[in-house]
Each structure stands twice: as structure tokens, then as C-alpha cells.
Write a protein that binds this DNA or RNA. Sequence first.
DNA 1: TATGAATGAGCATTCATTCAT
DNA 2: GATGAATGAATGCTCATTCAT
Lengths: 199, 199, 199, 199
Amino acid sequence: MENGNRTARKTSKREAIMDAAIELFSCKGYHNTHMEEIAITAGAGKGTIYEYFASKLELFQEILYTGWRRIQEHIPMEQIEHMPVAEQLQRMISGHLHFFQENRQLTRVSFLEADTIDQDLMAWTLKIKAEKERQLQELIEKGIKRGELRDDLDAGLISRMICALIPYFAGCVVMSEEEFDPQQLSAQITSAIINGIKK
Amino acid sequence: MENGNRTARKTSKREAIMDAAIELFSCKGYHNTHMEEIAITAGAGKGTIYEYFASKLELFQEILYTGWRRIQEHIPMEQIEHMPVAEQLQRMISGHLHFFQENRQLTRVSFLEADTIDQDLMAWTLKIKAEKERQLQELIEKGIKRGELRDDLDAGLISRMICALIPYFAGCVVMSEEEFDPQQLSAQITSAIINGIKK
Amino acid sequence: MENGNRTARKTSKREAIMDAAIELFSCKGYHNTHMEEIAITAGAGKGTIYEYFASKLELFQEILYTGWRRIQEHIPMEQIEHMPVAEQLQRMISGHLHFFQENRQLTRVSFLEADTIDQDLMAWTLKIKAEKERQLQELIEKGIKRGELRDDLDAGLISRMICALIPYFAGCVVMSEEEFDPQQLSAQITSAIINGIKK
Amino acid sequence: MENGNRTARKTSKREAIMDAAIELFSCKGYHNTHMEEIAITAGAGKGTIYEYFASKLELFQEILYTGWRRIQEHIPMEQIEHMPVAEQLQRMISGHLHFFQENRQLTRVSFLEADTIDQDLMAWTLKIKAEKERQLQELIEKGIKRGELRDDLDAGLISRMICALIPYFAGCVVMSEEEFDPQQLSAQITSAIINGIKK
DNA sequence: TATGAATGAGCATTCATTCAT
DNA sequence: GATGAATGAATGCTCATTCAT
């Protein structure tokens, strides 16, 4: 029991540290957040952080990895690939927005800072983003082949346009404290993309 | 002539420092760039920077202000307001892309870092962005009134969507070394926005 | 025991820093003493000083406060207030001289520098000095009332004259390496003040 | 005429710099006064100071030397040596107080800072002070020999006591903005010294 | 002679990381 | 494993001094 407890506590210590780090990184930014603050917020000692994370940078990376992994798990592309492309798009966007709303702080950290902290980290986020674009591009190409989308589209361009919307609205979501309906918002966005804005 | 020379030298020293700072900030980020590097790169002494800029932060701010000011000057909204909304949109996007291509490093600094360095600076960039969104929203509303755009659009949402594209493509432009044709790219983007992607 | 040890070490670290600071400040002055020297002299790291003192100025202030506090404790006015005024005077002077001899370096710091380092600090020392003068003035006035002193004296002036002697002889004591007898010296000084120098 | 003017201007430039330096040193202290301020206050260029003074320290030294020289000139000991010792004492004290009142700022600089700025400077002021004490000691000894003063006095001690009063009252004079009568004040002080304070 | 733009040695301070307990 | 006192490399900034004009 004590052992079980200790294991549980171990896990919770690590999680407490990550939660504290997410909170502080997202509020104050990477460079303005200090290891001691994280320790205090997590209710742990400064040295304890180094039991679980090799360095401040690695702690930050771990947070990013976790964030991206959770997003991926949250939006399972395989289950929706038979749907109409428009529907898939809307589900994707809706899924992201929903996730962002649920994980505001993690989102803030993931989107606002990663690029400027570390060269390696930047490369990694670029890779992730490229991967997203590629997935979307395939979706667009499928839509064109299926005859659902205009056949004069530059699939790469369109996928980039859609990829642009995600972090921007993520930012809006994260900055504003208001709740909103991801379903409805994604429907509007998708409609505008699909149908255009011209009368 | 002597005066001209002196003025020229003063100006060029200041500009050399700004150029060095833009270069380094954009490559290595704010926090990884040190005043001494800037001085060396600018071919100046450490102290000289402080003759022109009160602090590292103020140097950075100056760079941002300059960047935004130049963008504003580069895309004169007044001269195009009589055109069809679709044309205006394309010109705006085209103008931005053109500017980004010409000022890659300034763009990189302006878009990628400003948010996470300083609370005041963040407030300032948010204000600037809100202003951009407002301008665009008015444009959309005008288009709806004129009957050029669908009257079931949420003008605020659409303007946000378009605002989302700007920094994203700015990033693409800045990251890639390839040249591209802003005219053509903006035409494609505008076409997709205006006409939608549905067949 | 472990706790005692830890407390002891904490205290001794702090004290080692203060001792080093007193030594260096008193020998080289505030502005010529550098934090690194203090650290080295104290056998500590530079950062360790900042664990105990917020800044160089605060370290200096702490030293001054300590010095004044110790002087106050060293010369308990309450216990001698029933004695003849002449005796009280002699004991006060003797007490100061004794303290100065025992704490040469602390004295040097306290008397020679405080005024010119910081505006606030100067105000503080002025307050302390005014307080000393006031105490002495009351003593003189009491002596006059009791009929022990001439009734044509300007009590304020006399107290200032006596206050003048203290730091001057403190300086002499501190500068010279010779030992001397505070008892005897204070007796001579008091005698001269009380009886005058005229034949 | 232009040459004469230039010479005049030279002299006045040098004096303007010294005046500015005295003003600033006395108000803000040596370390808080910067060469640029002195230049601005003097209405000169930063470089110009170095035409007249080799360094900041030398400028300060020059001020001190000037101050002491003027005091010496102001109180010509030779002319009063035939007077009674008590009278001589009073004239000396009166002379100093008068000078201090006329040259408050110079006094402030001379007495409050010199000791802690530079090792050499400190040695110099110590020498000056020792010289003063020696002069006074001779005066006291003469008074004893002449039978004007008690013959059980320690002349060295008494001269030190008197020397202690000078800078202290100088400080009082300098700090307070009020005018006062040096004649009267010195009479009171001398009376207290000569006659003692005992009834 | 007078100037002030340019300089860089020098300094206080910070903070991620270590390690003895 | 958990801790936090101790550390020192790293950095932004200052300011007396120089020197080209």
C-alpha cells in the first residue's frame, strides 16, 4: 500500500511538475518562467524537477510532445476517411478547436513559443507542421479525384490555407476567456472555405 | 558636405546596428541574441548601441515599429477603396506577400517573436492585429452591402480567417529560400477565398 | 544535531559574507569593493551572497544597521541615568571608544562612508545622528537643572560638540594600530569638557 | 582682442568646469557624478574637461587642493600669534566657520568624501589633518608655557578635540540652509572649551 | 582649442544546474 | 527518491576616456 502510494505519488509528482510548467510557460513564456517557480507551483523542490526532466528545455519539449500526441489521439483520421471531404474537413477543424478549448494553456505553449526557443525544437515543430500539411493535402487531392472539389485547385496551397487557420483560431480561443461552440464555429469556417464568400 | 557626411555616418551607424539586430534576432531569436554579438556584427562597440537605443528591449521594439510602419506605407488602402472588394483583397494580400519577400528578416522578427518577449510589447502587437482585423471586417461588410459578397457571412469571422493567412504565408515565405510570384500566389489565394473550393 | 549543524552552517555562511564585506568595505570603501572579492574572501560563490542579501546596497545597509544596533546595546543609557552627569558623560564616551576599539572595521564602515553612497541611507544616518544629539541634549539639560552644569550653556551646542568628538576619535582609533585605554582616554576627554582648559 | 578673449574664455572654461564639478560632487557625491553631467553643467564638451584635467580623480583632487589652500590663506596664523591663546583659538574657529559658510559646497566636497575615494587621496587628507593637529598642538603647548592654560593638559588630546569640532560644525553649517553668525558661534564654542561646562 | 561619437573594460546581478544530506 | 543551499558562467548595461574632426 505504501509502495503503491509511493508509485502513485511519483507519477503525480511528475504530473504536478508538468502541470505547473504548462501553467507558467503559457502565462509568462519560456524565458520568463524560472525553474524555482515551477518547483514552488508544483509543490516540489527545485532538485526534484531534475529527477524527472534532464533540463528546462527537455521539460518544455516533453510538454510539446505531449500536446501534439494528445491532439493526434483526439482527432483520429482513420475513422472519418470514408466521409465526404467537406465533412472530414469540418470534423478536423471542429476537433482541433474542441481540443484547444479544453486545453487552452497547453495550446498556448505549443503554438506561441516553440519556434523561438531552440533551433532543434523549431526544426521539430516545422516537421510536425509539414506532416499536418501533407495529411491535409492528401485529403484535398482525394476530394478533387472524387469530384467533390474543383479540379483547378492547387492542393498544396489549399492545405496550407487551412493549416493557417488552425493556430490563428487557436490563438483567438486561447486569448479570449469566452466559451464558444466549436461545432458551430467549424461549420461556419468550413462553409466559407467550401463555398467561398462570393455571392 | 562635412555635415552631410556626419549625418550620413550617424545614420549608417544606427542603421548598421538595426540591420545587425534584425539579422541576429531573426536567426537566433531575441533571447539567444546578445548585445555583444549585435555590436560585433554591426562593426561597433558594445557601448555604441546604447548611444542609439536605451536597452535591448527598446532596440527590439524599434525594429518592430519600423516593420509595421513600413508595411502600412507599403499597402496604401485609400488608393484602392473604389475597386471591387475581390480586387482589393487580392491587392492587400499581394502587397503583404510582396513586402514579406522583400523583407524576410524583418518579417521573421515581427511575426515570430513579439508575443513572448514582453507583456507591453504583446499588448501592442495585439492592438495592431485587432486594427488589421477591423479594417478587413469593414471591407467585408462593404462587399456585402454592395452585393458583391454573400449576405449570410459573418464579417468578423471572415476577416479573421483572412488575417490568419497573412502571418502563416509570411512564415512560409520567410522560411523557404525559394522566390515566388506574390501576384500569382495572392491571385490563387483570393480565388479560393472568393469562389470556395467546392466544385 | 543535524538541524543544529545546518543552522550553524547557514548562519556561518551569512556571517562569513558579512565579515568579508565589513573587512573589504572598511579597507577599500564601498565603491572599490566588488561583489566577487567579497565572495572570494568569504569563501563563497558570487551567487551565494544574493541568497542572503538582495543587493550590494542592502548588504551594506545590513552592516550599518548591525553596527548601530550593537553600539546601542553596548551602551545602556538606562542603567546610568541616576549617576552624576559628568560620570554619565564619561561612561558614554568610554563606551563608544571601547566599542570602536573592539570593532575597528565595523566602525570604519559605519562612520566614513554611509553618507555618500545612497540618498536613503544618508537620510537614515542623519536620523540616527540627530537622535544621538537629542539624547545628549537631554542629558545636558538635566545637568543644568540639577545644578551640576553651568546654567548659561546652550545645551544644543554642547551636545553637538560632544557628538563631534565621537566619530573623530573613532577615526583616530580606527586608523591607528595602537591599542589604548578607553577608560583613561574618556576620562581625559570628559575632564577637559567638564573643567575647561583654562588655568 | 580675439586672443585676449580666448585667454579669458580659457580661464573661465576651466573655472566653469571646476564650479560645475564642485556643485555636482557636493550634491551627488563623487561616484554619482558623471563627467558628462559636469560637462553639460559647465556648458562645455565632454572632451574639453580632459584639456584641463587629466582624469576625474585629478579634477576632484584639484578641487580639494584648492579648497584647502583657500582655507589656509583665509586664516593667516602668523598675524595672530601674539594674541592670547584663547583669542587665537576663537579666531581660528571663527575663521573656519566663516569660510565654510561662504563656501558651503566646496566644504561639503572637501569634508565628506575625500576619505573613501582613493587610497592616495586619503593619505593626503590624513597628512593635511595631521598638519592641522600639529599646528594646534603647538598653540596649546604655547598656552600652557605662557601660563594661560592648565598645565596638566595633554596638548595632543586637546588639539584633537578641537580638530574634531571643525568638520562636524562644518557639516552642520553645510547641511542646514540657515545663515548664522560665525563670530557668535565660535565665541560660544571657545568659551565652552576654555571654561568647561561645569558650574 | 573644443568637441562628442565611439569605445570596451568592468560590474552587479541572474538563474539553470549540481550535489551533499 | 527528494531537497534546497551553493554555485559561477553568462549577460545587460555603465561610464571614464579617447581621438578624429
